[in-house]
Design a protein around this nucleic acid. Sequence first.
RNA 1: GCCCGAGUAGCUCAGUUGGUCAGAGCAGGCGCCUUGUAAGCGUCAGGUCGUCGGUUCGAAUCCGACCUCGGGCUCCA
Length: 655
Amino acid sequence: MSELTITLPDGSTRNLPEGATGADLAADIGPGLAKAALVVTVDGDARDLDRVLPDGSTVSIVTADSDDGLHTIRHSTAHVLAQAVLDLWPGATYAIGPPIQDGFYYDFELPGGATFSNEDLEAIEARMRRVIDADQAFERHEADADEALELFSGHPYKREIIEQVTSGAATGELVGEASIDGSITYYRNGEGFIDLCLGPHVPSTGRLGHFALQNVAGAYWRGDEKQPMLQRIYGTAWADRKALKGHLHRLVEAEKRDHRRLAAELDLVSWPESLGPGLAIWHPKGALVRKLIEDYSRDRHEAGGYDFVYSPHIAKAVLWETSGHLDFYADGMFPPMELDGATYYPKPMNCPFHVAIFQSGQRSYRDLPSRLFELGTVYRYELSGVIHGLMRSRGFTQDDSHIFCTPEQVPDELASLLEFTLSVLRAFGFDDFQAKLSTRPEGKAVGEDALWEMATDGLRSALESAGLDYVVDEGGGAFYGPKIDVDVTDAIGRPWQLSTIQLDFNLPEQFGLEYVGADGGRHRPVMIHRALMGSVERFFGVLLEHYAGAFPLWLAPEQVRVLPVAEEHQAYAESVVERLSAEGFRAKLTPADEPLGKRVRAGKVAKVPHVLVVGGDDMANGTVGDNARGAEAPERDLPVDEFVARLAVAMESKS
RNA sequence: GCCCGAGUAGCUCAGUUGGUCAGAGCAGGCGCCUUGUAAGCGUCAGGUCGUCGGUUCGAAUCCGACCUCGGGCUCCA
């Protein structure tokens, strides 16, 4: 009997009888692995465990410990979801159901345009559990296009996928739905459930079970708003009960950090209905934190060679015609208003104003680079369904700058700009960055090829010299120039896109910008749009969630709260507050007309960094008792001088 | 904008099948208590039950429209 030679990921080899499968290989390695195996990768391609291994291949056993394994569990769970829905709703049809971050979804269309309710989710979940308990095997089958169209005759979305795939026209998420090597693959399990699918799947439904259905949503077929709206069910699935519980717990924790909740609890910001959707008002404490953020931003920009400018909130249509906004951005703008026979628009961006400032006089190469900076409030007509607290609103303030420079200055300018960006973000407690470089799009783009190349190289070398991880989005740039976007990762691992650095070869053309070069001739400057926080409001929201409302000392609206133990300690407490205020700290006193425990609790709930308790001992010795936020127990008998010195250190380090 | 869901006091929520269902806790005001570390006691005040319309003898409760919010989709040159 001939043998197969299989190479394992560690480089060792194993011999197995011809016809051996991935499951056989796992069993040959050990019973534990055989039990844990979900799929295998053969020369890097994921396959079902029961498929025969080719001789000479490199095979790796995939278990739930790996991303591939979890991906498979989620994908297979999505199949079971579809099976349950098709069982429960005769006449329902299904579209696609891929694994996603932490889970999966599946899109359906119910007969008569019916929709799912939350109660339905419970019934579906129960049905899914029955399928899982039945431990049905996932069987892989192949068919040619005609057979496949016949098999899925009652399912138009599946047929559309088959037609797309067999014609080679499949794109994006459809590619993963079926084989494109000339045949269609599908999976069968249970009595008659089949689903078009490239696979692989776990061996049987019994390997699943640690899942939860989460919510129902509408989703356009193929993500196109002109296509029918399907009913999407989202779920999460994990390798074991503990991982599922952990995930559900993280969701609860993330909800506790929700900036809208914290904004209300900490009395920072609110959104009264009377203002309109996407429009916030800033209460004193929120405004104080915002001011500290803005002050820091201004200080850094001042030190960084920026010139401060201001511009109005509205301007005549002609400005937006010249800039091109009315051509390509009109849908995102607030509607115009007529005044004295002219048409005015609220500004969706600051750039045309900064261009106008550049144009206000003749510029020489000696004036460049010119870095104009403004905390500019813009108004955008965001669709009602996308508005989300401070994260996506209709009025927000960009920490916006437009840098006008010569083409030759671009590389150096970009390098220092990226350093500057990261340095500012680090000051706010972010140290995990991920960047994206977007290059020239296919088709129409403005600007010379050489300019694109130089600018893109400049962005790339800036990323590399900053030592930043980045991905390249080929062709992802705007028509007017390449860009870098910088994401930060927050305290619970979520990415937020904050900074953007964009080259613009278009606006200088549109406005006919010029500077006089050393040669006495007129030249066109290059423009760089950049924002570090992006939107101050959104940045505040991200910080609020990042810190879970517990702002570091330098940003805390109330830094110290002083509590006299009893009324007789009031005067001493006042003297401590006065001392702290004189040192430049934000300190307040809560008098002894409530029990101490209640006042301590109130201070902790308000997330004040230091709650000081002062009583008779302290009065005699010039000390305080410090309840530092996050500390297990109070620190008694701390001399005021020592406390002040510690605060100063923490302020300096922004910790 | 589209799909689904939700709106009861400043906040968190309870209100059975339409009929003492306008309630609780916290927060707030006042009084008592004078407190050494995460909720002292009492008392008062508050709401057009998102808005408008409809069904009904009677609507927080049922129906419709709208508004706002939430989860998604689309969008974010």
